[in-house]
Nucleic acid binder design. Structure first.
Lengths: 210, 210, 210, 210
DNA sequence: AAGTAAACGAGACGGTACGTCATGTCTTACT
DNA sequence: AGTAAGACATGACGTACCGTCTCGTTTACTT
C-alpha cells in the first residue's frame, strides 16, 4: 500500500525519479519539524537539508500539507499492540504508546496542523485518513478480537454494528489521549492511563468507588 | 472577564482606543476564517475587512494566533447545560451542542490550528487554556454535581480526586467529539451521541449487549 | 522634466517614498551593469547592492527594462556641444563624445539590449525615445543652427523640412557611431571621426580625392 | 559556407547526426523569435517546436546566442545588389532591401539582442562578425566597384585606404538604417531612402538647396 | 479655549518564503 | 554513438504577507 505523491510514473521513458531523494526529503521534513515546528518549516529549507532542489520536491508533493502527512505517517506505523494478558493492560499499553508518539515534537506539531488544514481541504482530509487514521484502527480491532477470545468482551455478530463500535472506541481512545496531550497539555502517565482505562472499561458510574 | 491583548491602558492621556474597532476586528476575523480558512487568513485582509489600519490591529494583538484565539473564544461561551433530567440526557445534550459548535467553519478551522501552534508556544498555550478550555470545564463540574444530587453518581469527598476525575471526563468527552468531527470527519448525530453516552456511562464491557 | 517610474504619487497620505532609495537603486543598477552586463544583471542583486528590498524596487519600476532605461538615461545628458568654431570641428567633437559614452560598459551593454527588447514592447519603445533618444536631438538642432549662423549651411525656411533633415542627420551620425562601436567593434578614434565628418559634409563623391 | 556549431563530425562511428534536425531547429528558432521575441524565447520551447530533444540542441550549439546568430544569419544572405544603372539607384535599392529585412520581427528582435550580448562576449562578437556583418560588406565593395566602372566614383589605388573607405560607408549605411528602424522607430520608405542617398552622395552642405 | 498625547488611516519599508520557470547536465532505454 | 524523454541542481523570477516605520490627521482628556 503506497501513499506516494501525485503520479508515481506516467510513461516509461526518461530519467527515473531518484528513490533516495524521496526518503531524504521525508527525513529532512521530520528533522525540520523538530527544529522549527510546523509554521517555521519551509519547503526551501527542507530541500536544502535533503540536498535536493526545490523543484524535485514540488515534482513529488503538491505542498507543505501533503509532504508533512507523508513524513509523519510512517511514524504511526510503529505503534504495536503486544498481548499483555488482559484488556485493561492492552488498553493501558496502547494509550501509553500513543502518548509517547504524541510527545515527539515532529508529531505533536504536525498532526494538529494538518488536521486544521484538512478542515478546508477535502483531498487532504482523505489523504490523512488513508495514510494515518484508518491504518491505526487495526489496533482497536485486534485488541477487541483478543478480548473477545479471552471472554472479556461479548462477540458481536453484526459486522456493521461491530464496525460502528470499533470506530467509537477508536475516537474515544485517540481523542482522549490527543486532547489530554495537546489541548489540556498535561502528561499522559501511568496514573492517567489507569484512570482512563478504568473509565473506558467500566464507565462513569463505576469510577469513583474504586 | 476580558481577554484583551497586551495592555488595555497604560497612561490616561491621549486619544482612547476605539471600542468599535475591537469588535469589528474580531468579527472580521471570524468572517475571514469562514471564507479563507486558517492558512488563508492574513492580518492585512482582516484589517481591510474591519475598515481599520494594520497598525491598529498590531497595537492590540501580537499576531494571528492571539487574534484568532480571542475571535473564537467567545463562541465557546455559548455552550450551556440545560437540565434534561438525567445524566445520560445531559451528556447527550452537551455532546450535540459541542458538535454543533465544531461544525461551524470558523471554529473547526481555527481550533486545531491554534492548538497546533501552541505546541511550540507556551504563552499561546496558556492563552488558549484560560480563554477557551478551562472555561468549559464548568459544564463538566456542573453536570457532575447535578448527577450527584440526583444520586446517579457517588459523591467524591477528596477535592483533588474530584478535580482529577473532572479533568479526565472533560478530556474524554471533548476529545472524542473533536476526534470524531475533525479527524475521522464523520457526523456527530443523535445515534453517535447515544452510543458514546452509553459507553461513557457504562463502559466497554456493557456496550454490546445493549 | 522627470522620467519617474509608474506613478510618482497617487494620494498624499501614507509614508512617503524614500528619495534616497531612488538614486541608490539607479547607481546600483549602473554598477551592476558594469560588472555583470545586461544578461547577468538581476533585480535581486540590484536591490541588495542598493541596500533596499526587492519590493521597493518593484514598487517603482515595472521590470529590468524600465529600470535600466532610467539608470542610463542620465548618462546621455552629459553630452554637450561646445562651440569649436566650425561645423566640421563640432561634428568631430560630438562624434568623439558620443563614442566615449558608448565605450563605457554600462551604456554599451544596456543600450542595445533595451532597444532589442523595445522591438516587441511599445511602451518601452516610447520610454526609450522620450528618456534618451529625443533628448539628444538638441545636439543636432543646436549644431545646425550654429552652422547656419556661421553661413556654413543654408537656412531652411519650412519647419517640417527642417525637422526631417535634423532627424536624418541624427540617424546618420548616431547610427554610424553605434554601428562602428558595437557592431563592427572597431574604435572611433580621431582618424575615423575625421573621415566620417568629411563624408558627412561633402558626400561620397568627394571623399577619395582628399 | 558553414555556420555549423562546435564540430561537424569528429569521429566516424555511431549514429550519424540527423541533417533534418539542424534545419528544423533553426526554423523553429525563427518561428519562436517571431512569436515570443528574444527574451521570451527558450531553448526548451525551440526543442519542442522542432520535435527534438533538448540534448540534441545543446550538442550542436553552446546556447541561445549562438543558436540565434545561426538562425538569422541565413536571412541576411538574401540581400542582393541588382544593377539599377546608377550609384544613387543602387544605394536606394540596398537601403530599402536592408530595411525590409529589418522589418521582419525575427531579425529586428534578434539582431540588437545578440549585439547587446556580444558586448560582453568576445567569441560571440567574432561569430556575429563572421556570420553576418562581414558577409554583407560585399554589397559595398560590389556597388563601389560598379560606380567606379561607371565613372561615378574615383578609383582608389591604395588597397588599405580603399578598405577603410568601404568600412566607413558600410557603417554609415547600415548604421543609419538600423538607427532609423529600431531606435527612432520610423519607417524607411522611398522618401527617406532618397533623402538619405542624397546626403550620402553629396554631403550635408548640399542637401537643403536641392 | 488651548495644549498635549496617544490613537488613527494610509502606505512605504526591509525581509522572507512562495511556487514557477529556464538553464544546462544527467540518466535511462531505444535506435 | 546518437536519440527522445524527462529528472536533476541551480538560481532568478515576480508576488504576497510579515511586522515595523513614518507620515499627517483626529480625538479625547487635561490645564
Amino acid at each position: 500500500m503506497q501513499s506516494r505523491s501525485s503520479a508515481p510514473r506516467t510513461g516509461r521513458t526518461g530519467r527515473p525519479r531518484s528513490a533516495e531523494a524521496d526518503e531524504a526529503i521525508l527525513a529532512a521534513t521530520r528533522a525540520a519539524l523538530v527544529e522549527l515546528g510546523w509554521s517555521g518549516l519551509t519547503l526551501g529549507d527542507v530541500a536544502t537539508r535533503a540536498g535536493v532542489a526545490k523543484t524535485t520536491l514540488y515534482r513529488r508533493w503538491a505542498g507543505k500539507n501533503e509532504l508533512v502527512v507523508d513524513a509523519v505517517a510512517v511514524l504511526f506505523d510503529e505503534l504495536e499492540l503486544p498481548d499483555r494478558g488482559s484488556l485493561a493492560a492492552d488498553v493501558e499499553g496502547v494509550v501509553l504508546q500513543f502518548a509517547g508518539l504524541l510527545e515527539r515534537p515532529e508529531t505533536k506539531t504536525a498532526l494538529m496542523a494538518v488536521v486544521a488544514e484538512s478542515t478546508s481541504d477535502a483531498v487532504l482530509r482523505d489523504r490523512i485518513r488513508s495514510s494515518i487514521v484508518d491504518r491505526q484502527k487495526r489496533l482497536v480491532t485486534e485488541g477487541r478480537a483478543r478480548a473477545q477470545a479471552r471472554g472479556e468482551l461479548p462477540t458481536e455478530s453484526d459486522p456493521e454494528t461491530a464496525a460502528r463500535g470499533s470506530d467509537l472506541i477508536f475516537d474515544v481512545i485517540a481523542g482522549a489521549v490527543v486532547h489530554r496531550c495537546l489541548v489540556s497539555s498535561k502528561p499522559v502517565d501511568t496514573d492517567w492511563a489507569r484512570d482512563f482505562t478504568r473509565l473506558l472499561l467500566s464507565g462513569l458510574t463505576a469510577i469513583s468507588p474504586a
